[in-house]
Design a protein around this nucleic acid. Sequence first.
DNA 1: ATCGTTGCAAATGTTTTGCATGTCA
DNA 2: TGACATGCAAAACATTTGCAACGAT
Lengths: 132, 132
Amino acid sequence: MTRQKRAVAAVLAETNEFTSAQELHARLREHGERVGLATVYAQLRGLADTGAVDSLRSESGETLYRRCGLSGHHHHLVCRQCGRAVELDAPEVEAWAHTLGQRHGFRDLEHVLEITGICDRCAAGPPRGATV
Amino acid sequence: MTRQKRAVAAVLAETNEFTSAQELHARLREHGERVGLATVYAQLRGLADTGAVDSLRSESGETLYRRCGLSGHHHHLVCRQCGRAVELDAPEVEAWAHTLGQRHGFRDLEHVLEITGICDRCAAGPPRGATV
DNA sequence: ATCGTTGCAAATGTTTTGCATGTCA
DNA sequence: TGACATGCAAAACATTTGCAACGAT
């Protein structure tokens, strides 16, 4: 357990939003924590492997990470503007995906479901004075 | 309408599987068509924008493209081994995603659903003599 | 002392861009 | 002709890796 590991865990714990490795690295610097970018990547990969964080690929090609609340398989509802995320349990979809896969002769089924939208806060308009 | 545009459309029409820009470019060379890599990327981006092809990001970070059969919004069941894809219509999921998003105060909802598995052909085992 | 972790810089791989040239309408 | 497409090489970008120094147990 190193200082860097703790630091990465700390920034991850700070937010509920999906964040890129680059941004997390920047945030660490802001906090005065000196952690190498390569180390951040290594940590995140490790955490994602063990399921301690969720990861998904943004439209722009970055991999985004978020500390994981639910332990098992689940989905996300993510705000396209602010990145705020809600974790979802979706038994119906699980069943549906499974049935449908089998009907087509597929096995070892997995699936990815991400719902995106604009959350109520963002829809309410940018905070007064913001230059967005 | 240029020779290159036709050529890209042609290779796309050849297969039902998700294919990377790099691979499509290679395939064009095999066909003796001389098309620049940058042009292939430009074409694919354009086609994806107009919805003429579907695109998704592979786990390895490449963007994969596939000519689109269904015109509207739909999902895919993709074989992780051979890339074979089945296009799916999923009204139940549409409704579910929409309801759930609204319940959480999100608007302008979109969603991505990809189901992956091993298709029957691949599950039947590798052809005899293969060294997998 | 040992072995995994770190961190820099360089490498990798995909995609984009600048810009001169070619080509369709 | 005149705007737009092309294509090369170089840039931009995220991510990974090689390897020497470091630090936790």
